[in-house]
Design a protein around this nucleic acid. Structure first.
Length: 283
DNA sequence: AACCTTCGCAACCGCAAGGAT
DNA sequence: CATCCTTGCGGTTGCGAAGGT
């Protein structure tokens, strides 16, 4: 299986790797370690570009890679992490150390995505596919648009889901957290009127991702979002505060303003922790 | 048996982020 | 500070295998 091998216009081999090429790459890295991928092929005696060598090493030759069929547990994990992280395959792969991002991505596209669709689950939102109905009421699968909504009218499931979406936004965008702090979670927290939160430019819109677009579109109110964040961290995660006792934080809310979020990996780990606690709580 | 479709997966491409100069 | 270079990521493609008609 694989692509046939050919030479590009610079005389570099493309396509399927031969056993001999694999052997040469492994032998070189074993002896000299990983280094400059650009110059590695020449030093290793390979007629490949550095990018190709890197890919071959990371996705195939690197020690510790688990190949072959995914177990049901692994599939479950992929679906779970995808619901949290979206198409961030590298981030998902970090949670599953023996699998490569390429492998996970391939399995998702060729198998898991279709399986979810067959089960009536939207593979992007991980929510039940809502068929167009004759009802005239505007509805969102998880978020109820209402300026008079109180936090108690939101299910803890939707709260957790929203929190997870925010987590994805925060961890994937450099200034996402700052924006949340400044625009939505500013202290003291005045009741922010919906029309005060304006997304002024296309750039802003892209920056703050779909979550904020929903705000802009009035699908959820900012005050509801604020309440949701409280609710998410209190009612859906009984063990949440206990889990972070070491942080000496009085309220879960404070976590949003703490230094814990300054590093992407920390954000991710923290939110995964929140999510798993939330899942236990919901089950 | 021949043809067609779907599956599985390796590898390529383009782009963006971040570091080096 | 600007530009260049390298690395890493995600989307997509290509192709043999497997299965169906």
């Amino acid at each position: 299986m694989g692509r046939t091998t050919w030479l590009d216009n610079e005389g570099l081999r493309k396509g399927e790797w031969s056993a001999e090429e694999d052997r040469m790459l492994v032998a070189y890295i074993d002896e000299y370690g990983l280094g400059d991928w650009r110059t590695l092929p020449k030093r290793a005696g390979l007629q490949r570009c550095g990018k190709s060598c890197r890919l071959r090493w990371l996705n195939y030759l690197r020690p510790g890679i688990k190949r072959g069929k995914f177990t049901p547990q692994e599939e479950e994990d992929i679906i779970k992490f995808h619901s949290l992280l979206g198409n961030r395959w590298a981030a998902i792969a970090k949670q599953m150390p023996n699998r490569t991002d390429n492998d996970i991505k391939n399995h998702w596209h060729s198998c898991l995505k279709k399986r979810l669709v067959r089960s009536g689950i939207d593979p992007m939102t991980h929510e039940p596919i809502v068929k167009a109905s004759s009802s005239s009421t505007m509805s969102s699968p998880t978020l109820t648009p209402s300026s008079s909504t109180t936090s108690s009218s939101f299910s803890s499931t939707s709260s957790a889901r929203l929190l997870n979406r925010l987590a994805t936004g925060i961890s994937s965008r450099k200034h996402g957290l700052d924006r949340i702090k400044n625009v939505i979670l500013s202290e003291p927290r005045p009741a922010v009127e919906e029309d005060k939160l304006m997304i002024s430019s296309k750039e802003d819109e892209e920056e703050v991702n779909g979550c904020f677009m929903e705000i802009d579109n009035n699908l959820i109110s900012t005050t509801s979002l604020d309440e949701l964040l409280f609710e998410s961290t209190t009612t859906t995660t009984a063990g949440f505060v206990a889990a972070f006792d070491d942080c000496s934080l009085a309220e879960p809310y404070d976590l949003y303003q703490s230094d814990l979020y300054h590093e992407t990996d920390d954000q991710l780990d923290l939110f995964l922790e929140i999510h798993s606690l939330g899942q236990e709580d919901l089950s």
